[in-house]
Design a protein around this nucleic acid. Sequence first.
RNA 1: GGCCCCGUAGCUCAGUGGAUAGAGCAUCUGCCUUCUAAGCAGAGGGUCACUGGUUCGAAUCCAGUCGGGGUCACCA
Length: 594
Amino acid sequence: MTDFTEQLRQQVAAVAAHVYQFQIEASAIKIDKTPPEFQGEYTVVIFPFVKTSRKSPEATGNEIGAALMERMPAISQYNVVKGFLNISFADEAWLNTLRDMRAEKQFGQLAATDKKVVLEYCGPNTNKPLHLGHVRNVLLGYAAANILQAAGHTVHKVNILNDRGIAICKSMVAYLRTGNNTTPASTGIKGDHFVGNYYVEYSRIADAEIQKLVAGGMTAEAAAKQAPIYLEAQEMLRKWEAGDAEVLQLWNTMNNWVYAGFQETYQRIGIDFEKEYKESEFYLKGKDLVLEGLQNGTFTKKPDGSIWVDLTADGLDEKVLLRADGTSVYITQDMGVAWQRYQDYQMDTSVYVVANEQDYHFKVLKLVMQKLHYPFANGIYHLSYGMVDLPEGKMKSREGTVVDADDLIAGMTDEAHAFLSASEKSAEFSEAEKQILAHQIGLSALKYFILKVDPRKRILFNPKESIDLHGHTGPFIQYAYARIQSIFRKLTEQQVAITDAYGSSLLPAEKELIVWLSQYPTTIALAAETYSPAEIANYIYTLAKKFNSFYADHPIAKAASVEKQNLRAAIAERTAYVLRHGLQLLGIEVPEKM
RNA sequence: GGCCCCGUAGCUCAGUGGAUAGAGCAUCUGCCUUCUAAGCAGAGGGUCACUGGUUCGAAUCCAGUCGGGGUCACCA
């Protein structure tokens, strides 16, 4: 371990037991990073000890500090300010830390655990293209999976395709009416957009028909249920459930168009899945589980034949699990899919990346599975994230305010391209290189913009204001990395050999970077525990910031001595490594030059 | 109405029991004849929604109030 925190905890606990006969769990000891205005790297909060020490905070701090120095030779000095014991480790200790970090081939990959995680994300409906909400979902899901993996767990990324139901039937009906046997290939329209257009077309037709009925004297509510196209969609759904060959064929064809479109978007955005579950394949299994629960008395049947679970004892309501006609509801399908996943993976934890509007649903799902005593029930975890709102509020497809994922990616790429072309570096890159760079930088801006925010919080996105390329952004971090690569290109050119002879002393700015770098593994562990990519995002931003500041007034390739050159090159190399590693955890690519 | 989440600088966000609450954007001032200025250094900008409580110590925990969002469908 590169970080001294754990050792310090152990030793402080031992000192407390020894000197004050005060038994305290090492994990309960509060150790912070020392704020910059004080001397030291770690601060032990000593207030908890004064009760048993029966001395002033200052005296207690000094006593503990002195005892620590005896136990840990790496400590060079300490000071006490009010109730805070600030501890400095010797330069030599930090130089060794740097050597350790350099020697660790997979720095940032924590020791393997035996925990198996299945992480579900994306979860699109197959009747329209992906939008801004999916973008937050997939960025979060992909990053969380990477982080869990880095924390040592085995992770399986899976998708759930909501491929059945009335929505896709609406697209199908509209296509039959107005599609004229065109296809994505014949029109040159991306498959998901192609099908989505018919979903929009459906709404247009339905609105017109409803208006006509209302003009004929019907109430709006009744008209909505009587519109011919609506009745057609319902009929189509019945046929689908009955296994009608013609309907199934059209359904298959249109879904496959959508999948092809999704695949393209996944690729553009840089995410993937190990396996895709289709709701249509598992909703029947969910039914079996419900019936099983009915048999063993976990669920109850109402006189009309519908099956219910009573969750009032858990502070929730009664929930329907199966309709009177025996057809399944939303949760039935999730039950079936969850069961199947356990057959496939025997996971300890199932992470569901789903927006917070479904908090209630996942509470119910977990409770129901627990009541059925499935082995995976306790491991169900809903990674709930806030919605992405526009300045005027929630995105609404009816009002045409939905921000399309493909448009968004293209917009960001164009912006990065424009910036690159306008810059003085433009001449250094070929057009092909600019295309690649623009994609890397544009996506980086978008991804970082979303991932730096705590997942639970809603995000405000203003499509009219472009996402920044400067400041606290993805490109800022990419740029810090690229600058370091530039230094190493120079060093290689000049055939300078870097060794780990670093001398014996450190400047404050050098030490600060080493200390910060040493916290990386702890940060990964924390990000994994809290399922928060924002932890990584903010950590690497601070690292880039610290490095830039260091870079501005400490020459690296042109350092005054060979030892300083070695030292700073080593720091720069580890900084670049961690920046790249961290960005990759977030799903952000790292250009070598920009 | 019940339950859940959120409220920190003009704006977007960090900080979730510890010292004088931090970044970015925007505004203003400096810095490219030395490793990439997508950068660096600095200035101004705060009743941490409000009230009470717990604590040696509260933006952070608890209770209440106000404001915003979500949810409480035999929709998915």
